[in-house]
Simulated assay, not measured.
Amino acid sequence: MPGTDNGYATPERGRDETADERADRRWGELIQEVRVAQTGVQILFGFLLTVVFTPRYTQLEQTEQTIYIVTVVLGAAATGALIGPVSFHRIVAGRRIKPAAVLWAARLTVIGLILLLATMTAALLLILRVATDDGYVPWLVACVLVWYLLCWFALPAWIRHRHSGG
């Protein structure tokens, strides 16, 4: 019964669903979100893996090669974190621990997004350093990084705070 302490949502929580129903809904939402991020990180990571096999790679300065290596490692870590929720779900499926699985999968997803942010920033830095010698490259990368932070974290946090009543 809504409004009671029997596992159903109260009006303050906004939905009339059991803990299992909430976990099922949240899992579905999470998987849809992860699909978008997985596709992007896998395409980026696949592209990064090919760079080392091009003739141009050996002509890069040591700094660019170091940025490339860091970018590939970040991309590998982001891929692992964003694929992690699928593996996590498969391993714990049927164990009646879906609420905990959703919580941990959501944490892996946030870690994956942070690693994807770092991968994209490092890749942008590498590409712009190779494409141009201008001193404005760090400024461009910083502006894009700020944009990512605003879109991915600051705006959602602001809206969450604004609509949570405090």
Rank of each mutant, 00 (worst) to 15 (best):
A105L: 02
L117W: 14
W139S: 06
V70G: 03
A118N: 08
G40D: 01
P138M: 01
Y68I: 00
Y136F: 10
L49Q: 04
D134P: 06
E33I: 05
M120H: 01
A123R: 02
Y8G: 02
V92F: 14
I83V: 07
R107S: 04
V141E: 00
R22Q: 12
E61N: 11
R162E: 07
Y148G: 02
V130I: 11
Q38I: 03
R35V: 02
I97F: 02
V144L: 08
F47Y: 13
R95T: 08
T39P: 02
P156T: 07
D20G: 07
P99D: 00
A101W: 07
N6I: 00
A118E: 01
V137Y: 09
G3A: 08
P138H: 06
H161C: 00
T119G: 02
N6A: 03
V86Q: 11
T4D: 13
L116E: 09
L113A: 09
R22K: 11
A131M: 10
L145N: 09
I91C: 05
W139M: 04
H161D: 08
V130C: 04
E21H: 10
W139T: 13
T54K: 11
R22A: 12
I83S: 01
G40C: 00
G14W: 08
F45K: 00
D20R: 15
Q42R: 10
L113P: 06
F53D: 08
R25Y: 12
L115V: 05
Q62C: 04
A19P: 09
E29V: 10
P85H: 08
Y136C: 04
T39D: 00
R13Y: 12
G84A: 14
L145T: 13
C151P: 08
I114D: 01
A93L: 15
A23S: 07
L128C: 07
D24E: 15
G28Y: 11
E12T: 09
A118I: 01
I127C: 04
V137T: 14
A123N: 07
V34H: 06
A118D: 01
V110T: 05
M1Q: 14
A122Y: 03
E33Q: 13
V137I: 09
Y148L: 03
R35F: 09
V92M: 09
T58E: 14
E21G: 06
T10K: 14
A77Q: 04
G135N: 05
E61G: 14
E12G: 06
G166L: 07
R15F: 15
L140H: 08
L116W: 08
P55M: 04
R129K: 13
L48A: 02
L126R: 04
I127P: 03
V92W: 14
V36C: 03
A123M: 10
T119V: 00
A105R: 09
L30G: 01
P55T: 02
W147F: 12
L125A: 12
I69L: 15
V70H: 06
P2A: 05
R13E: 14
Y148P: 10
V41Q: 13
W158V: 09
T63S: 13
G3R: 11
G28N: 14
Q38P: 03
G112A: 03
T10Y: 12
A77H: 07
E21V: 03
R160M: 05
P85F: 04
H89D: 04
I111K: 04
E61L: 07
